[in-house]
Computed example of a mutant assay.
Amino acid sequence: MDSTVDAYGRAHWLLSPRRPRSHLDEPLDVSVVTVDAGRSHETRLTGVRLRSPRLGVLPFGGFVLAASRSRRGQEQVQVFDALGRPTGSFRVGDGIEELLVDEAGDLWIGYFDEGICGDDELSRPGLRHWSSDGDPLWQYRPGPGHSPIYQSYALNVDTRAVWACPYQDFPLLEIRHGRVVRVRENPVRGAGGFAVYGDRGVFLGPYGDHDRIVDCLITPEAVRPVGYGRLVRPDGRELRRRRLVCRRPLIYVQEKPYLGWGVLDIREF
């Protein structure tokens, strides 16, 4: 159903005993398989009411499931404890594009255009920060040098900062302490993911070129490309269709059929 890598580098797969229908007539029991340092264990989640949910993992046990689409009044986020028991539910708005949980257990959610441009006020900011209890902690607001978000394209969540490159102008937004502290011009358009380390940024998959790497210098004012390359599989073959999770210097890559995760660590090259 989904797979992710948490803030501590543990990989998780959300598995269903059957293919979900267009709607769930009754709650479903699913499993989360966690792999940590080569060891795996399974947690059974009971009473799942969501079809095709996104998976988030809380730092000290527990899980978050979120449906991408949601009508008004429909609670589309479910929270489960470390034993897989449901502990709460709430709503965060229609059109979830990205869901990442930080080390504190808070949710960072980026939205896609149908949610942002629709009539749902919760998703209209384009990027929001929620507690795992459903409390709104922060929402993006345009300011000097940065315009409204029309779609969340790439999101990187770290311990001290959150970075985003949203559509339409793809600025590199640096978010700390509940506010956008810096906005940098960025000529790399449409990247699916990126990693940041010191004054360096590496962007993966700009428009029309899903395995292209753009190596950049990050100055106080702008992102400046300094080199280009290709991300390939360990055996040298091209990447297939993939999903990405980005956490500071790391880009986690999972190719279709989404069975395993690879990692690009920009500190190593």
Results as ranks from 00 to 15, higher is better:
W130Q: 06
Y111F: 15
V92R: 08
R128C: 14
W108V: 10
D36Y: 11
D135Q: 15
E26C: 05
G208T: 01
W108F: 00
L45V: 01
V253G: 07
Q78A: 03
M1G: 12
R71N: 14
V30K: 03
R49S: 02
L172I: 08
D29C: 02
A66N: 05
I116K: 09
G38H: 07
R237Y: 08
R243N: 04
H210K: 11
R184A: 07
R69T: 13
S131P: 13
F269V: 11
G193R: 03
G126K: 13
L217R: 15
A7F: 09
P17V: 00
R71D: 14
L155C: 02
F203Q: 00
G262Y: 12
A11R: 14
D106Q: 14
G178C: 11
V57A: 10
R128A: 15
N156I: 01
V30G: 09
L24R: 09
R176L: 03
S52L: 10
L137Q: 08
L231T: 12
V188K: 00
E103Y: 11
P144G: 10
R85H: 04
P148G: 10
V5L: 08
G115F: 07
G134L: 00
E255I: 03
D2Q: 04
V263P: 13
I213V: 13
L58K: 04
Y8H: 15
P53D: 08
W163K: 09
R69Q: 09
V77W: 07
P148Y: 06
L24E: 14
R69C: 10
D209N: 13
E174F: 06
R128G: 07
A191D: 02
R141L: 15
V79R: 14
R21I: 12
C216I: 03
D2E: 11
T43K: 00
L99P: 08
G143P: 01
S16H: 10
V64D: 01
A195N: 09
H12G: 02
R141E: 15
Y140L: 09
D211F: 01
D209H: 06
A11C: 12
D169E: 14
P225V: 04
G192C: 03
R19K: 08
A104F: 14
P148F: 08
R72H: 14
S3E: 01
F112N: 00
R179N: 05
P187R: 12
Q139L: 10
G143Q: 04
H23T: 15
Y167L: 01
L155W: 02
